[in-house]
């Protein structure tokens, strides 16, 4: 395995600009992937090799991966919709809303995501009766909800931090012009704070996307479930490496541009303040 880490190592490491200016990372991962395929291929002269395995299972795994992406988008949407108002409550003038929102945020931020997922999966019924209407709650919907809880808590913290980073005189100026509290937030504080929220929010999204593989543990057919099924159905343990790497590569290709965009945004904020 050492050859893999050697391949992954950058040739040069420019001090601070490294994460942005270093195209070597995706190249390195791609090389590692090719190397692992070659490694598995080498020991499989007779039986179908890893190339065949990837060609055979790749489309299925890719389909599963798309389900991870869908889950991440839905969880992020729900989590943001829940977390943004929670973040506003964190700086509410009243002691009670502030205390409650603080407790909720701390609880969901400091709980293992997988445990939260288990709770939601097993505590929620498979359908909800609201009034006379029955709303079915399929497993994937519960999983989305389960992942969106920690996301909401993290979004709340991002929102609170960005709102509080706007200097106090902006609040005074707004108050001096007779803006109410909510108007001040909506028209003056939030538009300035959103720029600061974007990088950590995107970072959170990338983390969430990778965490969506947790749903395979609660029995949902995502990219990871399908990869594992592929490996065990072939009864070829040596296929583990290329197939998992294929899955890793999918996530990487999706998340790496987000990470780079996040860094670019952060740098722009640093420059422009």
């Amino acid at each position: 395995m050492t050859h893999l880490s050697v391949l992954c190592k950058p040739r040069r490491l420019p001090a601070i600009r490294a994460p942005l200016a270093w195209p070597g990372l995706p190249v390195g991962v791609a090389l590692a992937f090719v190397a692992s395929v070659a490694w598995a291929q080498a020991g499989a002269a007779v039986r179908p090799g890893p190339i065949e395995a990837i060609l055979r299972w790749g489309p299925l795994i890719f389909g599963g991966f798309l389900f991870n992406v869908l889950t991440s988008v839905l969880s992020m949407t729900v989590g943001t919709a829940l977390g943004a108002p929670l973040g506003l409550l964190l700086i509410a003038p009243g002691r009670l809303p502030r205390g409650i929102s603080w407790a909720v945020t701390q609880f969901f931020r400091n709980a293992p995501w997988l445990v939260l997922l288990f709770y939601v999966m097993f505590l929620l019924p498979f359908e909800l009766h609201v009034g006379g209407v029955t709303i079915p709650l399929p497993d994937w919907a519960k999983a989305v909800l389960g992942l969106s809880l920690p996301v909401a808590a993290n979004v709340a913290e991002i929102v609170r931090g960005a709102l509080q980073s706007i200097p106090e005189p902006q609040w005074s100026a707004a108050a001096g012009l007779a803006f109410g509290r909510l108007q001040t937030i909506r028209l003056i504080i939030l538009p300035q704070a959103i720029r600061r929220m974007l990088p950590p929010w995107m970072n959170l999204y990338a983390i969430l996307t990778m965490a969506t593989t947790l749903i395979s543990i609660v029995g949902i057919q995502d990219g990871l479930t399908i990869t594992r099924a592929a490996i065990s159905s072939d009864a070829r343990p040596e296929m583990m490496l290329p197939l998992y790497l294929f899955l890793l590569l999918l996530f990487f290709v999706y998340c790496y541009p987000i990470a780079r965009a996040t860094l670019a945004l952060e740098r722009r904020l640093l420059v422009r303040g």
Binding site: P169, L177, G180, Q183, Q192
Partner: peptide, 25 residues
């Protein structure tokens, strides 16, 4: 009230800074 450090709203133009309160408040 007018403050020492101006405290204009940086995301709005001069005209918008002046218009915001009469319109929204």
């Amino acid at each position: 009230i007018v403050f020492q450090q101006y405290n204009l709203f940086p995301h709005r133009t001069a005209l918008q800074n002046i218009m915001m309160a009469p319109v929204h408040v």
